[in-house]
Structures are given as structure tokens and as C-alpha cells.
Simulated scan of single mutants.
Amino acid sequence: MSATGDPARSAAPLDAAQLAEAFALFSRASEELSTAYNALQAQVGQLTERLSVLMGALPAGVLVVDRAGGVVQANRAAESLLGGGLAGQPWATLAARMEASGTPGEFLITARGEVRRLALSESELESGAERILLVHDVTDTHRMRLTAERNERLAAMGEMVAGLAHQLRTPLAAALLYTGNLRQPELDPAQRAMVADRALERLRYLERLIRDMLLFARGDSAGRQRFAVCELLAELAHTLEPVARARKVAFTADCACAAAELVGDRKALGGALTNLLENGIQACEAGGTLRCEAVLVGTADAGIGTSAVRFSVRDSGRGIAPELQERLFEPFFTTRAEGTGLGLAIARGVARAHGGDITLRSTPGQGAEFSLTVPLAAGAPSGGQEHP
């Protein structure tokens, strides 16, 4: 028989060796994959445990909301603020319990018989499958902020005591003088009536000054209600139009806010706008014009983080010098002999108490425009809608 033999028989042992080696490689790879998987599972377990501890330790409420708007996870702080058993509930149901506070991003909710103020923020995961909602209890912070603002006002009033004493002394001395003249028997009825009218005029000025002082000291708004912007503007126009007509000033009012609503102290906001309108009437000469309008502005225009209503009061008066414009909002600063100097300070305080502010634009000889901006009334956060 030939030494070379059958080629197929000589190749068989080589194939078996290769197969054994392949099985050995596969076995080692499988063991390495199994070891790596076990290590990964251990890391996932550690991360899950750490996340659970972190969620439980966070003072802020954390809720995870899925694409359908359902709460899939909530930490202890969230359940403390919004109630237990949050997982599985629609977020829209929870959001419906919140009321607008008048401050952008903050809402009111009644928990355990107490009204709490909550700040809400939202972040969406990159996958878009879930969103994370953070709920902060800012009740104490809000109270501290109000206390700090009140202390600032009281400190400002303390610094103004000397000036206030002077402002009270002058009209009071005039009222005393006129009242003393009423005792003179030689005055005829017409002179006596004139003296009495002047005394009453000085006393009314004192009353107005004291009223404005109290408004400035109290500062923020007392009550809150929901009301239509256009209704408020129509009411102001009805009140101020006769005053403007008496001074021969053409007054117009226009509301472009449709059905927009505000939440706040309607009386305080109306008073602040009335002050701006009365100042505009006083600034106009006979034959001048005064225009008041309300328009909706977006986030960038409002500058206060939400949609807002901007009330603009524009007059055709003499305008205001640049060096006086910033001082106009200082308490007791006035350019009018009969002004108390508190009207604009009160108006700015009311605007800021509602989350807004007042700005002024004026060029000497070209009139002035005051703009009072207030955030729109927001309902409960709309986090429950479905995402596409």
C-alpha cells in the first residue's frame, strides 16, 4: 500500500483539533461574557440602590411621568406634598388640584388642611419616553421674601420720617390757620365759606397723604381673584374719561387681550393703573391726548418668564427729564405741588407683588409712556397631556 494513503483520512485529525480549539475559545468567551454580565448586574444593582436612597433623601418632590401622562414613580417628598399612592395616577388629575398663585411657575395646593405654595419644573429625557417633574415647597421661602420686602419698606419709611414730618406740618399749619380765621366775627358768610373750603382742602390733602403712606407700608396685595383684563380696562375708562374731558384731554382706551384673565388683587391693580392715568391727565395741557391700551406679550417681551399683559399709558405732555425718570419711583419724590410722592412707588409695589413691574419711556417734549406688566393667570400645570 502506498505510504501517502487516502488524503481525506490524513485531513480528519486536523479538523478535529481545530474544532476542539474553537470550542475552547467559545467556552472562554462565554465565561468572560458571563463574568462581565454578572459585574454589570452588580453595578446596576448598586446604581439602583443609590438612586433609591437619593430619591428618598431629596427634599424636593420627584415624579417620573411616562409618555401617556401617567406617574410611574414618585419619591417620599412628592407623596408628602401631593398625597400617597401617586404611582399609576394620571398627572393631569394631580395637576388639576393646583391653583395659580399669580407668580410664574408657582402654584397653590391644599395639603393636610394647609395651603402650600409649590414651585414646579419639568425636564424631558432625551428618549422622549418619560419626563421628570420636580416639585419644591416654597411656602416658607415666599413668606420670608414677603417679610424681607416689608422690612425694606419699613426701613425706607424710617429714613423718610424727617421728610414726612415736614410734609405733614405744612398742610396741617395751613389748615389750623384757616380754621382759626373762622373765629373772626367780622368775616361775612362768603369769606367764611371760602376759608372753610380752603381748610377742608388742606385736611383732604393730609388724608390722602396718610392713605398713601398706609398703602406703601402695607405693600403687597391683600386678596386674589380671577378677572378679565378687558373688563378692568373698561371700568377704568368709564371712571377716568369724565376727568380727562373736564381738563379738555382726549382720552382713548383699547383692549387687545380677547378673553385673557389675571389672578390677583383687582382693587390694587385698578388703583395702580388709576394712578398712572391720573398722572397722565395731569401731564397733558388742554387739547392733549392720553391713550391707555392692554396687549398680550410673550416671554421675551414680558421679561418675567411667562406670557403677560402689558398696560401702557401714553400721554402727550411735556415729557420727563432723564435725571428725574429714575427718581419718580422713589417714595415722597414728586414734581407736583399737590402730589404726595407715593403714587408711583405704590403702583410699582403692586406690580411687583403680582410678579410684574413698571417701566417708563420718555423724551422731554414728546410725552411719556408708563408700562405696567403683569403675568397672565395660569391654570394648573398642563403636564398631563399626551406626548406624540
Score class of each variant (00 low, 15 high):
residue 156 A to V: 05
residue 227 F to I: 05
residue 320 I to A: 01
residue 197 D to G: 14
residue 54 L to P: 05
residue 279 N to M: 08
residue 339 G to I: 05
residue 353 A to L: 02
residue 225 Q to Y: 00
residue 284 C to V: 10
residue 104 P to H: 07
residue 10 S to T: 14
residue 200 L to T: 13
residue 101 S to K: 05
residue 272 A to N: 03
residue 384 G to F: 07
residue 135 V to F: 02
residue 178 Y to Q: 13
residue 333 F to K: 00
residue 113 G to S: 12
residue 125 L to W: 13
residue 62 V to P: 03
residue 218 R to P: 00
residue 31 E to L: 08
residue 379 G to S: 10
residue 323 E to D: 10
residue 20 A to M: 12
residue 8 A to Q: 12
residue 257 C to I: 01
residue 18 Q to W: 12
residue 156 A to F: 00
residue 300 A to K: 12
residue 250 A to F: 10
residue 28 R to H: 06
residue 210 I to C: 05
residue 201 E to R: 14
residue 366 Q to L: 10
residue 194 M to S: 14
residue 252 T to W: 07
residue 95 A to M: 04
residue 368 A to I: 03
residue 37 Y to S: 12
residue 378 A to Q: 13
residue 64 V to F: 07
residue 39 A to H: 06
residue 345 A to E: 01
residue 235 E to P: 02
residue 290 L to Y: 04
residue 386 E to V: 13
residue 209 L to T: 04
residue 282 Q to C: 10
residue 241 E to L: 15
residue 59 P to W: 06
residue 27 S to H: 07
residue 42 A to N: 12
residue 338 E to C: 07
residue 382 S to Q: 15
residue 373 T to I: 08
residue 276 L to K: 10
residue 276 L to F: 09
residue 351 A to V: 04
residue 151 N to D: 13
residue 90 P to Y: 02
residue 249 V to H: 07
residue 186 E to D: 14
residue 162 A to N: 07
residue 26 F to N: 09
residue 209 L to R: 09
residue 181 N to E: 15
residue 93 T to P: 01
residue 125 L to P: 07
residue 229 V to F: 01
residue 87 A to D: 11
residue 157 M to G: 04
residue 275 N to Q: 15
residue 297 V to F: 04
residue 1 M to Q: 10
residue 215 L to F: 04
residue 239 T to Y: 12
residue 354 H to S: 04
residue 196 A to H: 11
residue 293 E to V: 05
residue 273 L to F: 03
residue 361 R to D: 01
residue 368 A to W: 02
residue 216 F to W: 10
residue 195 V to R: 08
residue 289 T to W: 05
residue 244 A to Y: 08
residue 334 T to P: 03
residue 358 I to S: 01
residue 249 V to C: 11
residue 162 A to F: 03
residue 65 V to G: 03
residue 6 D to Y: 11
residue 21 E to P: 00
residue 345 A to F: 00
residue 83 G to Y: 06
residue 346 I to R: 03
residue 183 R to N: 11
